[in-house]
Design a protein around this nucleic acid. Structure first.
Lengths: 146, 146
DNA sequence: AAATATATCTTGCAATATGCAAGTGTAATG
DNA sequence: CATTACACTTGCATATTGCAAGATATATTT
């Protein structure tokens, strides 16, 4: 039974965001699906951070339950599954890129070129549009082959 | 001994961000210090989410080690400690508010008024400046009483 | 001065999360 | 028809987390 004083991770916008981003593995899966064109279980598994299989399965189902990922059988190969970013996930791009710009400013070992932060600061919505177009391209390539 | 293949949570900007924000308690402490004017251990402790004391002590020291909080004895009362947000933490405001705006859009139980997202979308840098001024006010009030 | 209160941590321990290895079921491939 | 690829699932040892309680140090009240 749930305590009457239990805090639902809703209501406060920071708390709601923390409920989804306050987990490093969810965070990195969102990076991969939004920025690196990754769509399949094995794509995520092969990211350099080395997520383990049970954790990956758990986070994929959590992100699907949260309405961030749309799980579909790959039209090119029925034994493969694709996880497409939903509109809700796509709309995270401004915040995600904002955080990454901040990181490049403070991580002394950053691998990101200066041009990354520059491009976003100069033209935020244009930069977002560029990433969205990339997502569209990846998804279209997959779905056109059904 | 550290494995030679260990991933340092540096280099990739998303990974660096995940190293700090990929923890819900750090996330909420940053909300409190940047948006709610909280500065002391007991301020954070009394947030509605109910962080426990060991976790709070741990996260405060991690955020201090990460250069996000500046720990200082309260000039008004030597037995009290203040945690001030550093410039590095302040510069997280655009990303944090971006995430919160996203939350208000998708959390059906959001408590945030529409005006919050509207204000930020209409004038992002003005909104940030408003929050920074609030931080300045809180910090000045404390430090002027030494 | 003694008792009480406030503020900031520590410690102990149980619950939870994680990582690794191995196994399962289904579908394509040779 | 055996093999491989893919997407998980399971079991289990280890690591991390979180709650409750205790500790310490100063400040306030009586």
């Amino acid at each position: 039974m749930k305590s009457p004083n239990a805090i639902l991770w809703q209501g406060c916008p920071a708390r709601y965001a923390a409920g989804i981003f306050g987990d490093k593995w969810c965070f990195l899966i969102l990076r991969d699906v939004l920025l690196h064109g990754k769509r399949s279980y094995s794509d995520f598994l092969n990211s350099p951070e080395g997520i383990s299989t049970n954790i990956l399965a758990d986070r994929l189902s959590k992100l699907e339950a949260a309405g961030m990922l749309d799980r579909q059988v790959d039209p090119r190969k029925a034994s493969r599954v694709c996880y497409f970013p939903t509109r809700k996930a796509r709309n995270v791009l401004p915040a995600l890129i904002s955080m990454m710009v901040w990181s490049t400013q403070y991580d002394e070992h950053t691998e990101a070129p200066d041009s990354f932060a520059k491009a976003f600061k100069a033209d935020p919505s244009g930069t977002i549009a560029w990433y969205e177009a990339d997502i569209d391209r990846v998804d279209r390539d997959i779905l056109s082959q059904s």
